[in-house]
Design a protein around this nucleic acid. Structure first.
Lengths: 111, 111
DNA sequence: AATATATATCGCAAATATACGATAAAGCAT
DNA sequence: ATGCTTTATCGTATATTTGCGATATATATT
């Protein structure tokens, strides 16, 4: 493509799209599930559970971290990850607001 | 990449990821907003509103259609699109369920 | 029939995403 | 110090996404 046009949309639309993009791979959804269920959220445990190579899991963790959905702290030679609940709450609320706003006009649908 | 590993995850995870992918571009979120607001949902109107070329908008519409989020009916030389509310309801409910399930264990978080 | 209008599709270019092995870096144990 | 474990990063290959202009197609209009 020539140039990305994403900046031409509203900030809300971009934020929602970025959140959706973070969730747009089953591995990342699976990671979030594991992180929510486990007390200990060591990277290695996730690698064992997922059917992916360690480097690939690490990459998905990085993307979730870039999206601000998870946090990581170093624990000796290990990395402990967990969900950033504050950001997660913000995003999921925005998403629900989108769903609700779309549905409000449902009766006007033409098809 | 060698091979896609998406099939290795649960159907629910794949479905959620596909839905999220459909929403992972601001243009597609903007399109859904327009479709929800307008009675008449002609392709050309969307093209005028969005800062994208006609062919690009058509492509985004195609992706939303592939994701089963919208429906399109031919109206003479025009195409009338609208949200597939039944599918949309299903997806947004699944998404909310994911959010809720993740949040249930929030107190156990380690970081 | 010729023309205009609206939309989908094709072809192309560039950017991103996905995946893995190999390697580097950082901390722990002996 | 040396080696072991764990994780991040690099390099690479391939697939997908994004975007646009050009073209094809299908329906109106004159």
């Amino acid at each position: 493509m020539a140039i990305h046009k994403k900046e031409a949309f509203t900030q809300t639309e971009q934020d929602l799209a970025n959140f959706a993009k973070a969730l747009s791979h089953p591995a990342r959804i699976a990671i979030l599930k594991v992180l929510a269920q486990k007390n200990e959220c060591i990277c290695g445990e996730i690698v064992e559970i997922l059917p992916l190579a360690q480097s690939t899991v690490s990459q998905h963790l990085k993307e979730l971290k870039n999206a601000d959905l998870i946090q990581g702290t170093v624990d000796g030679p290990r990395s402990c990850y967990c969900i950033n609940w504050k950001a997660f709450e913000k995003f999921s609320t925005s998403f629900n607001a989108l769903f609700t706003n779309l549905k409000i006009q449902q009766s006007k649908s033409c098809c």
